[in-house]
Amino acid sequence: MTGFIPLLKKELTEQWKTNKVLILASVFLLFGISIPLSYKYMPDLLKLSKQPINFTIPTFTAGQTLAGYAGNIGQVGLLVVVLVAMGSVATELRSGTAVITLSKPVSYAAFVNTKFCALSLNLIVSLIVASLVCFAYTFWLIGPSDVINYVGMNLMLLAFLEFSLAVTLICSCLFKSSVVCGGLSLGILILQAIISALPVIGNYMPGKLLDWGNNLVTGVDITYWWSLGITLALTLGCLVVAPQVLKNKEI
């Protein structure tokens, strides 16, 4: 992948200069802080409403709180990942910077995959910061939880988000419009979420990783190894195919 280092350096600087680092980290951190708080104080908040409550307000366990955090990151966080990544190649195609960069001795694979690496790094750092804050807050407000299982849940979340990132990146190589890329990526991810909910076939879909993560922190012993294998293979496949898609596009 000729040109990998200077391209990665440029991508990381660009993420910093265009505030992409802050956007992703802020959203993830928001969930890391707000979920333990809302789960802890939900009963008190409902009582303050002074409306008659005809059901028993549950007291959330630490595992349920951490699963709630993962659920929010898996939905809203996913949307932010798509928004941040959807223009990564498309914007360069539209503006013409891709033409200048690719007229230099750099490979298409380096051009596309450095974007994935830079966004992944951003994603990993944001996830680490948010998950540490969430774990600490949950421990402090609600109670202890198993660290190993929590790490496992975050790895599942990361694998799912990396898959979403790779899908968005390949869509970004297809069109010059960021909006079209974003729409297509979300369409694909929603479709896989629907299929994930189906019996049998759903167990093989990337979306099942979120269920596995929840199972880990709530103490349910159901695993989805096929889903993990397929997710990793699909992510890798997207990274191999995306440069070829761009090359065939004849920019």
Binding site: G3, P6, G96, T97, T101
Partner: peptide, 26 residues
């Protein structure tokens, strides 16, 4: 070398930064 009809750059870079980036690619 290739100079397109409407050259595009990363607007957050200075002219010098851009040439440094291109030099590194070479």
């Amino acid at each position: 070398g290739f100079a397109p009809d409407v050259p595009a750059f990363y607007d957050w870079m200075s002219g010098q930064d851009f040439l440094k980036y291109i030099g590194e690619l070479h």
